[in-house]
Simulated assay, not measured.
Amino acid sequence: MNAQTYLKETNPVVTINVKDHGSIELQLFNEVAPNTVANFIEIAEKGLYKGSIFHRIIPGFMIQGGAVNQAVLPIKGDFIANGVNNPLLHTRGVISMARTNVKDSATSQFFIMHKDSPHLDGLYAAFGVVTNGIDVVDAIAKARRDAYDKPYEDIVIESVTVDLKGSLIPKTIRL
Rank of each mutant, 00 (worst) to 15 (best):
I112H: 12
I58D: 02
L168R: 05
A3M: 08
A139S: 15
R92S: 14
F54K: 05
K171H: 11
V37G: 06
I24F: 11
F54T: 03
V94M: 02
L7Q: 12
G60D: 14
G122P: 06
M62G: 10
G166C: 12
G128M: 04
H114S: 15
F111M: 09
P12K: 04
N2I: 01
H21W: 01
A98E: 05
E45N: 09
H119D: 10
K46Q: 14
D116M: 07
A3R: 02
N2R: 11
K150C: 09
L175N: 12
I63C: 11
I16V: 14
A139N: 15
F111W: 01
E31L: 08
V72E: 10
K171D: 11
V84H: 08
G93E: 01
L88W: 03
K76S: 14
V102G: 14
I75K: 08
K76I: 08
Y6Q: 11
I58Q: 12
D146Y: 02
D116G: 15
M97W: 00
L48D: 00
A141P: 01
D78F: 09
S105M: 14
I43D: 02
L168D: 13
D138S: 10
L168E: 05
V14L: 10
N82Q: 13
V18E: 08
N101C: 09
G166I: 06
I173R: 15
L120H: 06
D163K: 07
K76W: 11
N82D: 13
S96Y: 12
A44W: 00
I134T: 11
K142E: 05
P170L: 13
D149G: 13
I53G: 13
T5F: 12
I41V: 06
P74F: 03
M1Q: 14
H90T: 01
S96T: 05
E9N: 15
S23N: 10
V18D: 03
V18N: 02
A67S: 05
A67T: 01
Y152A: 15
A33I: 04
